[in-house]
Design a protein around this nucleic acid. Structure first.
Lengths: 338, 338
DNA sequence: CTGAAAGCGCTTACAG
DNA sequence: CTGAAAGCGCTTACAG
């Protein structure tokens, strides 16, 4: 920005002190009892010259940047991309901008990114935490920087968060499958000990046990690529020909699982029913359409922003925890058997 | 950030001037011939106290924020979400952070957002421009702020950009359909006069004409919701039963088109072949898998960052324009007819 | 009703 | 080899 106007230039041009300009700029003209006449002259000048105060200078002196740090596992994933969209839209309304990054669920990378965002003095953080960053989160909180976790949280200490009801929604979905006469239901998940995953599994296992059915769990390593995952699910299906339903713990697993089901020449839902965790555009279009446990994305975004902005603007930090219910969207991939 | 260390505190604690601290911090110790002994003492102190300079202050005095403004049509769209992922990853390597927003292709909103980003002194812009923001782009350039457009550009004035070869890739895809003996090929597009769309259409029309086939174009209003789009395509199919292939100009149109094809009870590819512009995870999984014109997303992101960072770091602005070739990914939705 | 001055936390030209 | 001082462009407590 070369030769851009500053508050000083205006002060000089108008022969007024910059204090006065600043007050007017910040809508404190009345409060500071600046004369109407002067106020109007200044406003006119500002409009005519399209003056925009330098936000960096403003931030440096007020300590507020009106920037939120959004740290998600991977911005391009359907779920996170949707969250990013809604969070930005809502933040915008309150004058906040979003700076984002993908953690890739990498602990070390995330620690560094938190520091980088803190250096830039973001006003608050929205984070899907990988394991092992408890200390960094605590540091932020001790430094009085608002943080709200989402998608998952730490069970061993208290933070604000917005998560889905992973246990309940999975539990219900499995029970639904059972009402359709499925009995051999497998649970396909990522190898992860984060609570969003363990809760889904707990919902599955409890639903199965309560119905005197035997849980059957396939764990896919994180390091797998697409092809490996498809192969692994394919051979799992070959080894478990009794299966009549699959519950996929993430939407990407569902995508790969569908390929595997094809490889085995099985028909959905006739030979095997499937339910996906996390909805996706795709599931509605696919033939047959796919039953899914849908996260209420817009509501989650709204909660995240509410909690965060509220925390930013209030003087004392509060802990707020929201567990939002999911919605089981019934489609054609689950059908009554026999 | 309460009671955080500043360069002043360090200067006091170590009984050195802050000038010296600043030099050491910026790796200018040797250049400024600071004694090794002092340098080490300072570095040690910084490490021990985990001192991180306030980037706001730094930016205010240097004029550099190491922030890039990414303005896309909609961050949650598959294509833009992928671009966002790669752009951030690449920018990160050079110490840049990304601040993003969705323009929704709204001219007025975009103008305002450009100003908001400029106020924050982003070092450069990556923009998918809606129509009518030529003046704002020119202003940025005149103020010596690097801008690179992508996905589309303005034909009436010179800017840096990275776009796909929309004409050529569509032209080739249509010709491919013709080699599979399709003759009644319709082109389904969004009502848009932006060049990425008009170029795709030009590729279609030329390929048809050169083969003495009659173009048949369906334009979907921007304002349509999902349901309306599906209905519109469904009735188009009913009115044009001679069609043996559809080319969809965007991946969302493809999704809706597939539903419409289902509604009509047509089988892909037996009754009708389809080709999508823009690839999507979904297309590979769908049965039948969908032939698509794939944008080389990672390459585009790389070009965007190369051009922008190069422009940021060089003193004189350059105009760089890259037209990257697309790849026609043949899958099961296009099959030789008869 | 309005302004001079200090401060936010850095950088850097200049001086010795 | 090192430092005092001015400056980046704002805000705000204080004074009159």
């Amino acid at each position: 920005m070369k030769n851009k106007l500053s508050i000083n230039d205006i002060a000089k041009a108008l022969q007024v002190s910059k204090t006065t300009i600043s007050f007017i700029l910040n809508g404190k003209a009345e409060e500071k009892r600046i004369s109407k006449d002067l106020t109007e002259r200044v406003i006119k000048f500002i409009k005519e010259n399209d003056f925009r105060p330098n936000q960096l200078a403003k931030s440096l002196s007020t300590g507020k940047t009106f920037t939120i740090g959004l740290m998600v596992e991977k911005i391009s994933d359907y779920f996170f991309a949707q969250i990013a969209y809604h969070v930005e839209e809502l933040a915008n309304k309150s004058g906040y901008k979003i700076i984002y990054c993908s953690t890739e669920n990498d602990t070390q990378k995330t620690k560094e990114l938190i520091k980088l965002f803190a250096e830039r003095h973001v006003d608050g953080f929205i984070i899907t935490p990988p394991v092992g960053i408890e200390k960094e989160i605590k540091d932020l909180m001790q430094n009085d920087i608002p943080v709200v976790l989402f998608d998952r949280f730490f069970t061993d200490f208290n933070t604000s968060y917005v998560v889905m009801d992973n246990y309940e929604s999975t539990y219900k979905a499995i029970n639904y499958l059972i009402t359709t006469k499925c009995a051999n239901i497998a649970f396909i998940e990522l190898e992860s000990d984060q609570n969003q995953m363990t809760e889904r599994k707990r919902g599955y296992v409890n639903a199965m046990n309560e119905n005197r059915l035997t849980p059957n769990i396939l764990r896919i390593p994180f390091s797998n690529d697409k092809k490996q995952t498809i192969l692994q699910i394919t051979s799992f299906l070959a080894d478990n020909i009794q299966l009549d339903a699959l519950f996929f713990a993430t939407n990407y697993l569902t995508m790969h699982g569908i390929k595997a089901i094809h490889n085995r020449g099985l028909k959905i839902p006739h030979d095997i029913s499937i339910v996906a965790f996390d909805d996706h555009d795709f599931f509605d279009i696919y033939t047959p359409s796919i039953t899914a446990v849908a996260q209420p994305i817009q509501e989650m975004a709204q909660q995240l922003i509410n909690i965060l902005l509220n925390d930013i603007s209030s003087r004392k930090r509060t802990i707020q925890q929201k567990v939002v219910p999911a919605k089981l969207i019934l489609r054609d991939s689950t059908i009554r058997k026999i």
